[in-house]
Amino acid sequence: MAWFKRDRAGINTATENKKEAPDGLWNKCPSCKKPLLKSEQIENKYVCQYCGYHLRIGSAEYFSVLFDDNHFTELFGNLRSGDPLNFEDTKKYTERIAESYAKTGLNDAIRCGHGKIEGLDTVIACMDFTFIGGSMGSVVGEKIARSIDYCIKHKFPFLLISKSGGARMMEAAFSLMQMAKTSAKLALLSQAKIPYISLLTDPTTGGVTASYAMLGDINIAEPGSLIGFAGPRVIKETIKKDLPKGFQTAEFVLEHGFLDFIVDRREMKHKIATFLKNIQ
């Protein structure tokens, strides 16, 4: 009968003195569902040690993975979006922006920084999906444009890490203009013979894919990333056909010639440094 009774003798800590595990100490892999300790995630570059799934991370994590000793100078960090169209749907755009500021601690969906990758001066512009789905608005385009000008002025290579749901509908044409604007700036970077590496991560879609994400001297992606323009459901309904297995995964895109390499995040820093040494 002891199996059905709680043995009080083995309880040494009073209930009021027990402590809960801190939030964020553990995470669960979205792929294999196994528990991941936060410290192990950091050590493993935010890749599941069991199945190799690449967890979604933001600019802070990418900077820590790529910049030497996580040392960098942030560029153009004070830029914030306006509301040129006075957009209002279920919620005013200004309210949505204010909520994103408070929730993420970011000023928009991209951060830019200058630091070193294995001793090589590099400018990185990294998108953050947590800020309104990493949507491309006027601030995203402006920060990319200014980063490119900075690279041209100082002769530094440029790495852009894309992670986006596409154009920011609340800015309408102002958002769509960023596709042409950033593409034109990248043409100037090419004329200056300065390397541009584009890293596509999960997800990279919409206007971002249709512009700067696919214009790199080298286009690379992380394993399993969703890469495409329109969503699979929209495409299927348009062409009235079933889509191939693995459609819009990085592996599918590589097989069809739109990527140069797929690189594991744990090897990303060394690979990028190798690319830069070989193309400079």
Rank of each mutant, 00 (worst) to 15 (best):
V65M: 08
V65N: 08
L66E: 00
F67S: 02
F67G: 02
D68I: 14
D68Q: 03
D69W: 13
D69F: 15
H71D: 09
F72W: 12
F72L: 13
F72P: 00
F72Y: 15
T73F: 13
T73A: 13
T73R: 07
T73L: 12
E74R: 12
E74V: 04
E74H: 03
E74T: 04
L75T: 01
L75F: 01
G77H: 05
G77P: 00
G77L: 03
G77S: 11
N78D: 06
L79R: 02
L79P: 00
R80N: 08
R80A: 10
R80C: 12
S81T: 03
G82R: 05
G82H: 12
D83L: 00
P84L: 04
P84Q: 03
P84G: 05
L85E: 05
L85G: 09
F87W: 08
F87E: 05
E88D: 08
E88L: 10
E88I: 04
D89N: 07
D89T: 12
D89E: 06
T90E: 10
T90K: 15
T90Q: 13
K91T: 05
K92V: 01
K92A: 14
Y93G: 01
Y93F: 07
Y93Q: 13
T94G: 06
T94P: 03
T94L: 02
E95F: 14
R96Y: 14
R96F: 14
R96S: 07
I97A: 05
I97Q: 10
I97C: 02
A98I: 04
E99N: 13
E99G: 07
E99T: 12
